[in-house]
Amino acid sequence: MAKTKVITSENVKLHYGDFEALHGINLDFAEHEITALIGPSGCGKSTYLRCLNRMNDLIPTARVEGDIRLRGQDIYAPSQDVVQLRKSVGMVFQQPNPFPFSIYENVVYGLRLAGVKDRAVLDEAVETSLQQAAIWDEVKDKLHESALSLSGGQQQRVVIGRVLAVKPEVILMDEPTSALDPISSSQIENMLLALRHDYTIILVTHNMHQASRISDKTAFFLQGRLVEAAPTKQIFLNPAEKETEDYITGRFG
């Protein structure tokens, strides 16, 4: 069975000035799957991830080549509305970055700016999003307190709730649990498994166990190249490339 491809990318190259950081990546993402991007630090996986919602646009020296499509639409086309793109392709960062407002305001921010004023709609969105982000029970009695008063793990889940409230199609996650303790991490992992039914998730992680536990597909990056992308089981049990095997078994030198 061939699942629908949500994002396709072909020969993606990225230059920082004269330096080529990505050497032509071909990778597709199927609907309602979790894809893990793994590889050593500096291999380009985060850089690649940031091509998918054009966050690299913020870096003046960065230049992206190749073809990236969201449901067939070229996201680097001149007619592409970047703001609209980032609404469909949400992003969660390594460090929890809640706005210095109340929990409630954090979640409804995107909606408010989109012009939603109806209190009932906003309340509803807060509850649904925070429930999906598996944080509702912990914060439902203090929605109007500062999001900064929460622990790192709670903040990260509120941030995920904030992304969900905008109803994206794809969620990019750049090492979302690497700044968190093991319990918070596993809460987020369980949440991602539940979210997979409604969203397409692309996850950069340094944690091999995390990749093997929750992802459907795994892509291994090395020095700006995509070495191998395959169903997670295959990558971990029977990788096609020697480099992948070395990395996964920790024999990487």
Binding site: V83, G90, M91, F93
Partner: peptide
């Protein structure tokens, strides 16, 4: 981080400045 968060949420640059950075 705050600016990145705003932009990644689909806010325009002006919205990010006026609604997140300035407050």
């Amino acid at each position: 981080d705050q600016r990145e968060a705003g932009l990644a949420l689909g806010l325009s640059r002006w919205e990010t400045v006026t609604h997140i950075v300035i407050p």
